[in-house]
Design a protein around this nucleic acid. Structure first.
Length: 554
RNA sequence: GCGCCCAUGGCUCAGCUGGAUAGAGCGCCAGACUACGAAUCUGGAUGUCGCAAGUUCGAAUCUUGCUGGGCGCACCA
């Protein structure tokens, strides 16, 4: 609808130019918005005001010229008004709005699918936590945002690949192996001073106990370095499997798990660094290798090979992103915790040195989560092993409520997650509000069916009976669903879907309380059944993108 | 000290990338089930959009400077 209107306006501006009503101007991007005030029409366009300065004419005069030259061949426009400083306010014909219902019923779960991705390959990398412990609530938010963004991009005709980068080659893993070894010794009777750098969670003990059960006490005497290496492989494997299971129960799956170790195979990292050095992006100061990230606006250059000869995390990350591009992705999306924001200029520098546009790598920052219980902060300390895990949240509040709660704010804003509120089945918890609307509609449809009034086909009802204000609002809102999705895709903002859902459910609930769907009036009932069924479809489609259930009963 | 993000009713947040009279939810007050599901609905009060300049037809939105908060500033990941 919006796009069609934009074309009409663009054509009209062209016609005006041709007729000499307007000078030869650069046509700006046509911005069409939905006015806050319904008196201002269904859509409003500000193009006349934008052209005013270029054309050196009164904006209202320009608006008038555009209005007079609109070539509305499809007859979609009911009325155009020029208002305020030069807005063009459009009223769309009711018939046209109502025809949206047919689209929804024809397309069903495809309603809202967009073509803007043009089949481009896009990779979304998220979670990517070290397999050194279970996922906690902070990871959960990133997991949902990444998962939902991927779903969203998929509906917009992007070819999406979801990836988890396993940081299994660094110091952390070494600490993990050590932690297991210390617990191993402790369980076998030795007195151990547990180092600060080690992981203290109970899951470490379980892994140690498991090794004892399977392989006995032989590692007490083996070479420590080799044992640590072995233990960190074992522990990393076990923990990663647990992580995968937790994610799966959270509704989050990945297409690919990429191990950092892969990058080092066949000298992958050092070859890449050598090649970048040859191109002048990397220089040596005699003991260390530096990447010249300042060439792309970073504050200072960054070390890629340490004095001790070990590559940094950044070095591997350069190789990783090069690997991603080599796999043919057109666009990369990285989802990070907001505490990593200082890392962005570095990686963008790397991407550009690798010959790509900065815009080919989108970085989404997800703010950390404040966990509360009934308003009181829950202490979280990773060191001590005291933190609320994703598993615990899932067990306590359930998948749907957990996911929905993480989607209620824009991802770069702080989020308070209150366990008590999230599991409350009350009006403080919007997930039920939306699900309830869906279940309610299902219930209506069931009941109508029982009373012998099955949902009619679009052709067998008269849409012009839908004249109540709430009915018109519902229809317009549903017509704008694809536009909302388009905005979400372009801005990579998944919270827009949540806000849309709350609003749509709200209008529906209000409508429901005011008007009966199933009445003695067969024709009206037929029309309203079609209407609420369309609402059901749109609610269901949007919830599906969120990975939240759309229940038929609650 | 430098950089990034944030500041919108009592609270938690939206505000469609510069538009028209700034919106929801929670909480508070008052109401609605002999009606398709009351996990719902209806009505009411609450704002110098942190402060000050600037840009223009027009600013919560863009620029600059302050104030206050969060986070970064590793040869950690």
């Amino acid at each position: 609808m919006k796009n069609k209107l934009a074309c009409l306006i663009a054509d009209s501006v062209a016609a005006c130019t041709q007729k000499g009503l307007l000078p030869d101007v650069n046509l700006p991007q046509i911005e069409i918005e939905v006015p806050a005030n319904p008196d201002h029409g269904d859509y409003a366009c500000n193009v006349a005001m934008i052209l005013a300065s270029q054309a050196k004419q009164n904006p209202r005069k320009i608006a008038q010229a555009i209005q007079e030259n609109l070539n509305d061949t499809e007859g979609m426009i009911e009325k155009v008004q020029i208002a305020g400083p030069g807005f063009l306010n459009f009223m769309i014909k009711d018939d046209l709005w109502r025809k949206i219902l047919r689209n929804i019923l024809d397309q069903k779960e495809k309603y809202g699918c967009l073509g803007i991705g043009q089949g481009k390959k896009i990779q979304v990398e998220f979670v990517s936590a070290n397999p050194t412990g279970p996922l906690h609530i902070g990871h959960a938010r990133g997991a949902v945002v990444g998962d939902v963004l991927s779903n969203l991009l998929q509906t917009a005709n992007y070819h999406v690949s979801k990836e988890y980068y396993i940081n299994d080659a660094g110091n952390q893993m070494n600490n993990l192996g050590k932690s297991v070894l210390y617990r191993y010794r402790e369980l076998l009777g030795e007195t151990i001073e547990f180092p600060e750098s080690c992981y203290k969670g109970d899951y470490i003990k379980e892994i140690s106990a498991d090794i004892i059960e399977k392989e006995g006490r032989r590692y007490l005497t083996e070479n420590e370095e080799e044992t640590v290496r072995y233990f960190n492989t074992v522990a990393g494997g076990v923990i990663l499997e647990d992580i995968k299971k937790d994610l799966r129960d959270f509704g989050v799956t990945f297409d690919f798990y990429f191990s950092e170790k892969e990058l080092y195979k066949e000298n992958g990292v050092s070859d890449l660094l050598a090649s970048l050095q040859k191109q002048g992006f990397i220089y040596s100061d005699g003991e260390t290798l530096w990447f010249k990230t300042t060439a792309y606006g970073d504050d200072k250059d960054r070390v890629v090979i340490r004095k001790n000869g070990e590559p940094t995390y950044f070095a591997a990350d350069i190789a990783y992103h090069q690997n991603k591009y080599a796999r043919g992705f057109d666009i990369l999306v990285d989802i990070w915790g907001a505490d990593h924001h200082g890392y962005m200029p570095r990686l963008w520098a790397a991407v550009q040195a690798l010959g790509h546009d900065k815009n080919d790598l989108k970085i989404i920052l997800v703010q950390l989560v404040n966990l509360l219980r009934a308003g009181e902060p829950v202490a979280m300390s990773t060191r001590s092993g005291e933190f609320v895990t994703l598993r615990e949240v899932l067990d306590e509040v359930g998948k749907d409520a957990a996911r929905y709660n993480f989607l209620m704010r824009r991802s770069d804003s702080h989020l308070d997650f209150d366990l008590e509120v999230a599991k409350k089945q009350s009006n403080e918890n919007p997930v039920f509000y939306v699900q309830y609307a869906h279940a309610r509609i299902c219930s209506i449809l069931r009941m109508a069916q029982e009373r012998g009034m099955a949902l009619p086909a679009y052709e067998n009802m008269n849409p012009s009976l839908l004249v109540e204000p709430e009915e018109r609002t519902l229809i317009k809102m549903m017509a704008r669903y694809p536009e909302m999705l388009e905005g979400a895709v372009k801005s990579l903002e998944v919270h827009r879907i949540t806000f849309y859902l709350n609003e749509l459910a709200g209008v529906f609930h209000s409508y429901y309380n005011k008007n009966k769907v199933v009445t003695d009036d067969a024709a009206l009932t037929a029309a309203r059944l079609v209407l609420v069924d369309a609402v059901r479809v749109v609610l269901g489609n949007a919830l599906k993108i969120l990975g939240v259930n759309a229940p038929e009963k609650m």
